[in-house]
Design a binder for these strands. Structure first.
Lengths: 156, 156
DNA sequence: TGGGATATCATGGGCATTCATGGTTGGTCA
DNA sequence: TGACCAACCATGAATGCCCATGATATCCCA
């Protein structure tokens, strides 16, 4: 599964296209036979877009079905909230995608956006909004980091 | 097995035909030798239609038999409710299907319908009814999501 | 180490194809 | 013969593909 690091800001052109940062593109396409594109969705508690590779969402979906059963109301609510609002965006030959208008509006994205790698997934922000969010997160992380549980050396 | 994401609203014409969204069509037909169409049925607790590819229904059936035994009354009740009422719809040359009148009526679908991808299956709603349902599910998911078991992180 | 050549990348615009949609025709079964 | 169903055709809009450009970073060689 792909891994995303670092932050990049790219322009959104008149047609709504954005270049996905090359490192993210390579991360997604590294897996043989993987879907050449990304999947994005509206996260529940943040004014941004979240994205990942298809394998990530498939795993989320399959675990929901596996842990809750295919007709469990709790499973359905999360599946509907995340998956129904998701979009599968394939790269054009130049490595760009088209952000759906609804998700763009929800994140307040206009003519530029910031890609933020956070491990197995990434976020897409309005550049100014991300600066504010980042400052907030830094303060929070400084408090939380010392309390993190130990890694446990390779949980099976 | 096919994977369905995102939502699409299409018109139902006078003859009852609906275009299945191209991404859903491709997902279904991607598997080599798969039945070129979809399977739909009436879900137990929602006023909509549910659909999937044939492989999903086969797996559902196999799990019912596996978890309950072939002559268990509970298994039989679910099998009867879901599988007996299911319809197999093949695509016409343009990628459309005809929704059976009974299922259409049960979901309150008239001249338009919304396809909602939720992972291994999808739903077909009356567009307004889905908007209401979606708002409801978002609230519910916001409560559920923090309780979700961990996923991602490379653990298979 | 410095300078030039090269490759990669982000960006912009024009064009062909696909897609959703509606109507029409031909065939089949009652 | 009439009703229904499936294939065929047509159309406008939206989407994705192809080309071109400039800037940046990288590599190679002197």
């Amino acid at each position: 599964m792909a891994f995303f690091l670092s932050t990049f800001t790219n322009r959104v052109d008149k047609k709504g296209r954005v270049s996905v940062p090359a490192p993210f593109r390579n991360a997604v396409c590294a897996s043989e036979g993987a879907f050449p594109g990304i999947v994005i969705y509206r996260p529940l508690n943040l004014p941004c877009i979240e994205g990942a590779d298809l394998a990530f969402l498939e795993q989320l979906s399959d675990r929901l079905y596996g842990d809750f059963g295919p007709f469990d109301p709790d499973q359905m609510s999360v599946a509907t909230a995340i998956l129904a609002g998701a979009s599968q965006l394939s790269f054009d030959p130049e490595g760009r995608v088209m952000l759906p208008a609804e998700l763009k509006a929800g994140a307040g994205i206009d003519d530029a956006c910031t890609f933020v790698g956070i491990g197995r997934k990434f976020q897409i922000w309005n550049p100014e909004a991300f600066e504010a969010h980042k400052a907030d997160q830094l303060g929070r992380a400084a408090e939380q980091a010392p309390k993190l549980p130990p890694f446990g050396g390779g949980r099976p």
